[in-house]
């Protein structure tokens, strides 16, 4: 590397170090109420500061933060959404203990309710896919029969390790019709186990043309993924 370029690179490195130091200062503790107040601010820099603080908060902040999802100021909703994501990612970091992640997943599962807004429902299901365990599968599976939530619920179940998610989708596809059935069939095709393949093969023989066609397509896609060789 030439000397002038090395100097410039060092300057950039120093700048990044200052940025990191500023972030560390911003980790000072806030209460949940203070976090919510900052997120609800009309001042964008306050909202961003809150969002950057949010990762350190645990399940006690899930309810108050998601309560901002239906705020009149759309910027507040956006800041709250990304704050919740930061909290979940922090709880699921490699060095976190299982109890921390489990508590966050339980708090998210507790949000799932027919009275919730679609924003909260979709976000909770999305994040359960990232931090949930088989313990939350029954709560998620309840939303597999609703055309408004089947895709988000199935996506969460696909991401949760273990067989419980697949078993829930196999149960739900029995008797499912129309768009819900199509979504479930393609979601089941994301699973690599023999049970998924066997069920899809059986569904190709369905008397319901929509289901038979979806199963045929899903199997062809599934086989592509399973065959990947890099």
């Amino acid at each position: 590397m030439t000397k002038p370029m090395r100097v410039v690179m060092m300057a950039i490195g120093c700048g990044l170090a200052v940025f990191a130091a500023q972030s560390a200062v911003a980790d000072a503790h806030l209460s949940v109420d203070e976090l919510v107040e900052m997120l609800a601010s009309d001042d964008g820099s306050e909202r961003l500061k809150a969002r950057n603080h949010a990762a350190a908060f645990g399940p006690e902040a899930v309810g108050p933060v998601t309560a901002l999802f239906d705020h009149d100021n759309r910027n507040v909703y956006i800041a709250a959404k990304w704050s919740l994501r930061n909290m979940v990612h922090h709880s699921a970091r490699p060095e976190a203990d299982d109890a921390e992640q489990a508590a966050m997943a339980e708090a998210l599962a507790a949000l799932l309710d027919e009275d919730q807004s679609s924003r909260v429902m979709h976000e909770a299901l999305y994040l359960l896919g990232l931090c949930g365990t088989e313990d939350q599968v029954p709560a998620i599976a309840e939303w597999l029969n609703d055309s408004a939530t089947v895709d988000a619920a199935a996506a969460a179940l696909i991401r949760i390790p273990g067989d419980a998610g697949l078993e829930a989708m196999l149960d739900a596809v029995d008797g499912a019709e129309g768009d819900v059935a199509v979504s479930l069939i393609h979601a089941i095709a994301q699973e690599e186990g023999a049970a998924a393949r066997e069920r899809l093969e059986a569904l190709t023989e369905s008397d319901d043309d929509t289901i038979a066609e979806a199963a045929t397509k899903a199997l062809s896609i599934r086989d592509l993924r399973v065959d990947y060789e890099g």
Partner: peptide, 10 residues
Amino acid sequence: RESGRGPWRV
């Protein structure tokens, strides 16, 4: 494990 939506999955 991103999975797409409805029939739009690969």
